[in-house]
Nucleic acid binder design. Structure first.
Lengths: 334, 334
DNA sequence: TACCGTAGGCGAAGCGCTTCGACACCGGCA
DNA sequence: TGCCGGTGTCGAAGCGCTTCGCCTACGGTA
């Protein structure tokens, strides 16, 4: 069929094993021999057969990525993440096998079938039904998100609690002491990756630590509810000067309504958010906030999971510290 | 390591080859024997080793998908397409290996390395530098788009010429005889997948056939150019009553400006477009148009390329006929 | 009754690669 | 001079699966 390692060996006048060692670098080979082999490889256009390699070495150089491919609000972020995983995987000379979120047996299939060396799972929920199957596989797995019971699985996520604290502290450092908070609907707090709960806690803690008052309001992100949430905040405390928005979908509506209702941003109200930088930046008033670094999370995920492939290192959970980008939607009180 | 076919054979009290034949169905096996084997498989949780299978059978049950993962305007459409490919591949019991567009040697790597059975390439340009390498691979390939020289490669795309004709005919059937057309900038006509050129031709042909006048205007999709394009059309012919927009990015701006400048849609001007249905539907005035069926294209692409895997059928180019969805942005003249 | 075709099963030869152990050769040391 | 430890190379044994050819039974036909 195509050119095999035996062809290369013959062409270079060495044995098959020598060619293999030249290619893998796992034994020292003298410079002249190595040169002959490399020349033969080039001349014949040799490419090792991935299946044969996988069979003999128990390594495939492929990682599985389970991603939510349904069209949704945050498609852009998902793409960024997927691209980040592919890029980073290539950096380690790995390819990426794409599985969809709803292919519940997908991980099991590719894992048990030894098609991949490791598995990255996006969008993990607090009580995720896939975890059990994942834990049984011999491939290391990394989860994006923080389930209640990670067991022996690694996790990466943004440190939402720190993000909540940082968001509030940014406001209190500017002197704001009467704060509003637009969060997620209760349903998200249950499911989700617990990020909502963690963020809430960070917000509350920091407000208390700074001696600031805090009015919170859930919001599903619709234009109506967003407007209503803003009004509810100011009804509860008309003197609010700082607002934290942890709801990508609502962000635009909240800002627009603040301005439209005679509360210009940042002149009357300072606004801080957590979101992908692109989302925060493209609002009518660009919004200062904590960036969700999709690509960085992707990189870290791949790094972590590949580190575990042949090391017997234990699982680990890593929370990335968010960084705040000032886009001018806040200003000192007074 | 894990359960092998030999374990299953032992457990079922048959030979290894018998187990293999039960699994593949390539030879008749008596019902009782088959049952024993299947029971053993279940009991042991046996999964064939993909690498071993690939080595022995020269089939991997994986297809490569080369997709543009950079964040762009049409991320949603790309995702739809990717999801469509994965779904359809699963339907044939295949998995999908994801390559990025800019990984120029990616296809060569996975192809020559026998990691995949077939290759799907998105976003092919008229003179695509990847074509040559793809043609050299032994795996069948299907291109999304229509390059100038497909050679032995298969292609799928929407029939943009038919779409152009249908768009115009929809207007002329309603009695419109003075038409405007907002197209792509010249640069896109050069690159791209020639779809712009093909659409242009369809539009011009149909206008001529119906004896309608046609004023065309290029547009890069920016708000400014979109407004300028509309004004240019009506400057050239103030009596235009029907407009064809073949520019996703411009569509919103064109519609908005028509309405804002006292030319309500559809009361004063009928508008027809070609775009993904979601885009047409979410405009201020939902726009009637020819749908770009991302998922259908994906399905057809997978069907075509897998059909060629072990058949020696020749390459083929398929142009999908677009269908028109009426969203109320057109009305009879008068 | 003798024969043949077929269904049902087995053995073994690869598929192309990695890797372990063996071996030859060389220079340095006692 | 003899021995020892590296260094560089080779041979061969798998890795787990598919598939070809072969063999046995058995039922049907002449």
């Amino acid at each position: 069929m195509s050119v095999t390692i035996a062809d290369v060996a013959r062409e270079a006048g060495v044995s098959v094993s020598t060619v293999s060692y030249v290619l893998s670098g796992k034994r020292t080979i003298s410079a002249p021999t190595r040169a002959r082999v490399e020349a033969a490889v080039d001349r014949l256009g040799y490419r090792p057969h991935a299946g044969a390699r996988a069979l003999a070495s128990a390594r495939t150089n492929v990682i599985a990525l389970m991603a939510p491919l349904r069209a949704g609000v945050d498609v852009g972020v998902i793409m960024q993440f997927v691209a980040g995983v592919v890029l980073r995987a290539r950096h380690y000379d790995h390819d990426v096998l794409l599985l969809t979120q709803d292919d519940v047996r997908g991980a099991e299939r590719v894992g048990a079938g030894s098609m991949v060396d490791a598995i990255v799972v996006m969008d993990v929920e607090t009580h995720d039904e896939r975890l059990e199957a994942l834990a049984r596989l011999r491939q290391p797995t990394v989860l994006i998100g923080l389930p209640e019971e990670p067991g022996t699985l690694s996790c990466v996520d943004l440190d939402f609690e720190a993000a909540g604290r940082a968001a509030v502290r940014h406001l209190t450092d500017l002197g704001h002491r009467r704060l509003g908070y637009v969060g997620h609907p209760g349903a998200v707090r249950e499911r989700g990756t617990s990020f909502a709960v963690r963020f809430d806690r960070g917000v509350a803690d920091a407000a208390q630590a700074a001696g600031a008052s805090l009015v919170a309001q859930d919001c599903d992100g619709s234009p109506e509810q967003s407007v209503a949430a803003v009004e509810a905040l100011f009804a509860a405390d008309p003197r609010i000067t700082g607002v934290v928005v942890h709801n990508e979908a609502a962000l635009g509506h909240v800002v627009t309504h603040l301005v439209a209702s005679g509360r210009p941003v940042p002149e009357a109200v300072s606004v801080v958010t957590v979101s992908p930088p692109e989302v925060a930046a493209r609002q009518a008033v660009p919004v200062t906030g904590l960036d969700i670094p999709a690509e960085r999370v992707a990189h870290v995920a791949v790094d972590m999971v590949l580190a575990r492939v042949d090391g017997d290192e234990p699982a680990e959970t890593r929370l990335l510290t968010p960084t705040l980008t000032d886009r001018g939607s806040t200003r000192p009180l007074g």
